[in-house]
Amino acid sequence: MTWKQMFTSSIGQKFVMAITGIFLITFLVVHVGLNACIWANDNGEMFNTGANFMASMLVIRIMEVVLFAGIIIHTIQGLVLTAANNSKRKVGYAVEYGNRGSKWYSRSMGLLGTLLLLFLIMHIYHFWVPSRLGGIANIKPLQEIDYSNGLGKQYHNLYLEMIQVFQNPLIVILYVLGCISLAYHLMHGFESAFRTIGLHNNRYLKMLRHLGRGFAIIVSAAFAMMPISIYLGWVK
């Protein structure tokens, strides 16, 4: 069995989805933790310091490339698998099977993933592009802020960017919808990923089901509360 045979088989392709999916889940933990610093109510000092620490660390710079690779592989493999699976029944049923034994979001991972991709494009445009590419060509750079009591250390004021972006109610709504898509995507994806990599002990599967649902709801709700709390002026 060659690597090619393995990674082009049905289970091999699912394995790619699971591994990249679990990696993206671990990224969410870091992302939600850092972003929660906006609630320190210190005019963004903790958040900006944290973001700057991440941006200036080599490990994180390398992981940023791995992260983009993970998103791209997860997306392409997902689209390839969805298209292949949808082509396996050319003549359909007159009476549809419906939702017996499966949840709608479990059957809609392709759709939820596509919504998440659209959300990600908007999200990257709002924050990653000005933060990383600001100053290049016509891209407006982020404002700088000094927290070093005059020692001259300048930080990107990513916090101010968040405050400005989330003044638009339409964008807040789009972000909340993105978080809802994320929640449903994870409700299925978290447990399913572990099943796909071969976890079959009932005790762990049961544990992961609860953990996955808890993770999906808590992380997505925390993300959704960020634009909402900024828009409502709860963050100072």
Binding site: I11, K14, R100, G101, S106, R195, T196, L199, H200
Partner: peptide, 24 residues
């Protein structure tokens, strides 16, 4: 045949109640 996305429709319809854990 297609690949499994762990939705569980098979387990729900199986006349012999084969468990989806077998797929894992």
């Amino acid at each position: 045949f297609g690949s499994c996305t762990n939705i569980g429709a098979c387990e729900a319809t199986c006349p012999k109640e084969i468990q989806i854990t077998n797929i894992a």
